[in-house]
């Protein structure tokens, strides 16, 4: 574990060298505690796969002072290898009819039904949220579905697209460019700046996907 200044008004906490399955929830727990204890000094707390970046208010503190205040919290956290929480579970409906489903099945030497069964049969953990508002990186995808990103990214992926790449899966909350393989579509909105909260998912949460058909997708407000 180490603390490093990240520019004039941010402090990076490196919590591990490699991510592991339990780390996102532990980092989420740490993030909550730091927010509770030191919130007024902080502007943003951004959990990463193995890190936590604190954007702080330079008029109230600096990286040295903040480091001192963080030490006891970090020691307590370090002494607690398991998170006391489970992480909230979200069940997200997916119409598995993505443009790349057939290609993914071929590349993985599986049937389309097997791809769907493997993808929806795994419980995922939100490891990080970034790239775009509400874009949650979910891990860990079954090794039998692991593929590198597409050679050339699509210029536009429709909102709600469920996609995979390497050992990760994610839903694109807005239409955007994207280089992942599209397996299906989720009819739910995963980011809405006017909603409270704007994004239902948080780092450390658990996600399960359940397969639905086109009629159910439309009934939930999905636009094919």
């Amino acid at each position: 574990m180490r603390l490093e200044p990240a520019g004039a008004d941010a402090l990076l906490i490196v919590l591990a060298e490699q991510p592991d399955a339990g780390l996102p929830l532990r980092i989420a727990t740490l993030t909550d505690r730091i927010h509770l204890e030191l919130g007024p000094l902080l502007i943003d707390l951004v959990p990463g796969w193995t890190t936590l970046l604190l954007h702080y208010d330079l008029l109230r503190t600096d990286h040295l002072q903040l480091g001192k205040r963080l030490l006891p919290l970090l020691e307590d956290w370090h002494a607690e290898p398991e998170s006391p929480r489970l992480g909230r579970l979200h069940e997200l409906p997916v119409w598995y009819a993505g443009e790349d489903l057939a290609e993914v099945a071929r590349a993985c030497a599986l049937s389309e039904a097997e791809v769907i069964a493997l993808h929806s049969g795994t419980e995922y953990r939100v490891g990080a949220i970034g790239f775009a508002p509400g874009f949650a990186y979910l891990g860990e995808l079954d090794a039998r579905l692991a593929l590198p990103r597409r050679a050339s990214p699509r210029t536009r992926v429709p909102a709600g697209s469920l996609a995979i790449a390497e050992r990760q899966t994610a839903i694109y909350p807005q239409a955007s460019p994207g280089g992942w393989h599209l397996l299906g579509r989720c009819p739910r909105r995963l980011f809405d700046a006017r909603a409270e909260p704007p994004c239902p998912l948080a780092v450390g949460d658990r996600v399960r996907f359940c397969a639905i058909d086109e009629a159910a997708f439309r009934a939930e407000g999905g636009v094919p």
């Binding site: 502007i43 943003d44 954007h55 949220i129 508002p133 980011f191 700046a193 704007p198």
Partner: peptide, 8 residues
């Protein structure tokens, strides 16, 4: 500010 944890 305050929403970077959600990718904003």
């Amino acid at each position: 500010f305050g929403w970077q944890h959600l990718g904003v």
